[in-house]
């Protein structure tokens, strides 16, 4: 009871790979949002297109920043 089956298994290294993989997918999602906002603003001109675009870019920057931050501190 309480015995570790693989004492040398690099648990946190594997966790890091999974976290970074998840973050990378999120960065791709950030690009999809930017693309989609462009599609929306091309389809409809409702008056606040620039704000929607700025929001999508801020979101993308946030995803990239979290990814880089995770890469550095994990």
């Amino acid at each position: 009871m309480g015995q570790v089956i693989f004492p040398n298994f690099p648990t946190w290294a594997v966790a890091k790979v999974f976290v970074l993989f998840g973050m990378a997918i999120y960065v791709v999602f950030g690009f999809v949002v930017v693309r989609q906002v462009k599609l929306m603003t091309d389809t409809l001109q409702l008056g606040y297109e620039s704000i929607a675009k700025v929001l999508s870019y801020v979101h993308l920057l946030f995803t990239i920043a979290v990814f880089i931050f995770a890469l550095m501190i994990l």
Binding site: M23, L44, L55, F62
Partner: peptide, 25 residues
């Protein structure tokens, strides 16, 4: 990082709902 990731999800959630409401006309 888990907390940062959580707030990333919150940001996406807000953005998606806001844009869906604004552009579904």
């Amino acid at each position: 990082i888990a907390i940062l990731g959580w707030y990333l999800i919150v940001t996406s959630f807000v953005l998606e709902n806001l844009l869906t409401w604004y552009f579904n006309v």
